[in-house]
Nucleic acid binder design. Sequence first.
DNA 1: AACCAGGTTATAA
DNA 2: TTATAACCTGGT
Length: 287
Amino acid sequence: MPIVLNGVYPFNFDLIANGGQAFRWNRQADGKYTGVVKKSVFEIYQSGDVITIESSGGDKEEAFIKDYLDIPRDYNQIEHEIKKFKELVPAVSLSSGYRILFQDPWETTISFIISANNHIQNIKRTIENICMKYGEPIDFKGKIYYAFPSPESLADVSEDELRLTKCGYRAKYIIETAKIISSGKVDIYNFNNISTEEMRKKLVTLPGVGRKVADCIMLYSMRKFDAFPIDVWMQRILEHIYFNDRQVSLTKLQKFAEERFGEIAGFVQQYLFCYARNCWQDIVTER
DNA sequence: AACCAGGTTATAA
DNA sequence: TTATAACCTGGT
């Protein structure tokens, strides 16, 4: 029987699944989302504040998936805090129910290396290709899914072969990063008790990982909520709200966000990102 | 056909 | 320290 979570609010799985943090959730015609997390397939359906979850791993996955979905955290309080910045009220209202998932650091690292200068469609396709080619198969409801492959299984792949997954020039970044991670030279699974700044310095030593990708990794897989990834959408919306549409350098925007939002910057980023992506037309036409 | 997109890297001022 | 070009791929 399925896992049922009651009274989960605010929670909007459409935003969570499509909000740029994860690439492996797919909406079915019936409104259910299917995705692979770690070694299990999950099927999630939201109806109001009731979340119904089925998994290839069965009911024993309940604690894991609740942690992944960040269920224990009081997002009502977080949204309330952020709305104290009155310029953020529209963003929070329109993206209420967003949650920051607790994903696997390795998968998140590779996923966001692939995301650089890329389209969402191609990012998702490439990740699926990599999983199908190198990941472990998982049977769920008579269908085969594939887990994200281990660092070891990508470390020995040739660049030409990996390029068949359509990752392009990022192939060498992926392979080199896989080698560094699997060798333990950068131990992303034991970054606990390290400051965000220290962690960022370690992460950007990985090829293909710059400031933006490093902050995505920390925010989406390490619960570093003061991380503040700035992509083109964030740049646009920040310049629009705070700098009268003037062009501002990334480093200045980073500094600005860090000083203004501090410990909750990561949450602010999510609401602003969704707001900018989903409502850009309205934002610019309203003047 | 040229240009762009969830940036990073390598070079140059 | 800050600025510019090149980069796979697939879509317009």
